[in-house]
């Protein structure tokens, strides 16, 4: 976790913005980024940082926006190996687990 991200978290909390912190906690196979990569998702859909971009990131962002509504934290798995993923353009071919955490 780095300082710039922590500053962003502090700022969001100061402003009373309920954002979600996304952390890649595990990866298998080929994924764009590895465990420990982080991204903040704001309720208006803005993001700070990246967990690798592309469809997988967009998918996680949608999940995070839902989570912000429900105010709960959970693990979410993104599979980039199956045919559907290939059709959607997630070409890395790995599995990635992210933790969606309310801040």
């Amino acid at each position: 976790m780095d300082r710039n991200l922590l500053d962003q978290i502090a700022l969001a909390r100061q402003q009373g913005v309920s954002a979600a912190l996304i952390t890649i906690i595990d990866t298998k196979g080929s994924t764009p980024r590895k465990a420990g990569s982080k991204m903040l998702v704001y309720p208006d859909g803005r993001i700070y940082g990246t967990i690798g971009g592309g469809c997988a990131e967009a998918d996680v962002k949608l999940k995070a926006l839902q989570a912000i509504q429900d105010r709960h934290s959970f693990i979410y798995q993104i599979n980039m190996v199956n045919d559907v993923a290939a059709e959607e353009g997630m070409v890395c071919g790995g599995i990635m687990q992210v933790f969606i955490q309310m801040i």
Binding site: T23, I25, H72, S73, F74, I75, F99, Q101
Partner: peptide, 15 residues
């Protein structure tokens, strides 16, 4: 250290 999953009845400790 962050709790990322736990028993079903302890959902409140996640995160």
């Amino acid at each position: 250290m962050t709790i990322v999953s736990g028993p079903a009845e302890r959902e409140n400790v996640l995160g």
